[in-house]
Lab assay of single mutants.
Amino acid sequence: SLSVDNKKFWATVESSEHSFEVPIYAETLDEALELAEWQYVPAGFEVTRVRPCVAP
C-alpha cells in the first residue's frame, strides 16, 4: 500500500522574543526536524527542539 504512517511531533520554534511549539507530521524524528527547519528557518525562526508527541 502507499499509505504513509505519519506521526505527530512537537517542534519548539524560537524567535528573538518568543518561543512556541508547533505540531509537525512526519514519519521519523529526522524528517520532522527537516520539515520544521524548512518551514520556519526562512521566516527567521530557530528550531531548537523536536520531540515525539506522547499520547496521554
Rank of each mutant, 00 (worst) to 15 (best):
K7T: 07
V41L: 10
V4K: 14
T28A: 03
V41D: 05
V50S: 01
A36T: 03
I24K: 01
Y40F: 10
E14R: 13
F9C: 15
S15T: 09
I24V: 07
N6R: 14
V22W: 03
C53H: 12
P56Q: 12
A55M: 12
E34G: 08
S16P: 13
S3H: 13
L33E: 05
E37W: 12
Q39A: 10
D5H: 15
S1G: 11
S19I: 10
E31M: 12
Y25V: 04
P23Q: 09
A11T: 02
L29T: 04
S1D: 13
A11R: 00
E27K: 15
T12E: 03
Y25D: 04
A26I: 02
D5P: 14
V4G: 13
K8E: 06
P56K: 08
L29A: 09
E17N: 12
P52S: 08
L2D: 09
F20P: 00
K8A: 06
V47K: 01
H18Y: 13
S3I: 12
A26E: 01
P56M: 10
L29R: 05
F45Y: 12
T28E: 02
A32C: 05
V4A: 11
E31W: 04
S19G: 04
E34I: 14
P42V: 07
P52Q: 10
G44C: 03
W10C: 15
S15L: 06
V4L: 10
F45V: 03
E46A: 07
E31A: 12
F9N: 01
T48G: 03
S1H: 13
G44I: 00
F45M: 06
P52W: 08
L29P: 05
T12P: 00
A55Y: 10
W10T: 03
E31N: 06
E21K: 05
P42Y: 06
T48N: 03
T28D: 06
D5V: 15
S3V: 12
L33W: 15
F9D: 01
S1Y: 08
W38S: 15
T12S: 05
C53R: 03
V13M: 04
V13W: 01
C53I: 05
A43N: 11
A11H: 01
P56A: 11
A32R: 00
V54N: 11
A32H: 01
T48R: 05
L33G: 03
T28H: 05
W10F: 05
A11M: 04
E37Y: 13
H18D: 07
W38F: 13
E46I: 13
G44T: 00
V54C: 10
E27N: 14
D5S: 14
L29K: 04
L35W: 06
V54R: 09
A43I: 10
V22F: 05
R51P: 00
N6E: 07
V50A: 02
V22T: 04
P23M: 14
H18W: 12
L29H: 05
A43G: 07
A26R: 02
S3P: 12
P42H: 11
T28G: 05
R51Y: 10
K8S: 05
P42N: 09
A43D: 11
W38L: 15
R49Q: 13
V4Y: 08
E37C: 08
W10R: 02
C53W: 05
P23Y: 09
D30W: 13
F20D: 01
C53A: 14
E31H: 11
E31T: 04
I24Q: 01
L29C: 15
L33I: 13
P42F: 07
R51S: 06
W10G: 02
E14T: 14
V41K: 11
N6S: 12
T48A: 04
E27Q: 14
E46D: 07
P23I: 15
E31Y: 05
F9E: 00
L35P: 00
A11G: 02
S15G: 08
Y25C: 06
F9G: 01
S19R: 12
T12F: 06
P56E: 11
S1F: 10
K8Y: 13
D5R: 14
E21V: 09
E27D: 10
E17M: 10
F20S: 02
T28V: 02
T48V: 12
K7G: 05
E17K: 10
V41N: 14
L33S: 05
L2V: 12
E31R: 13
E34K: 15
F9Y: 10
S19E: 05
T48I: 12
P56L: 09
V4D: 09
I24F: 04
F9R: 00
A32G: 01
L35I: 11
H18R: 11
C53Y: 05
A36D: 01
K8F: 13
A26G: 03
A43P: 06
T48H: 03
A43C: 15
R49E: 11
V50D: 01
E27L: 13
E46K: 12
Y40V: 05
L33D: 01
E34N: 09
E14F: 06
V47G: 01
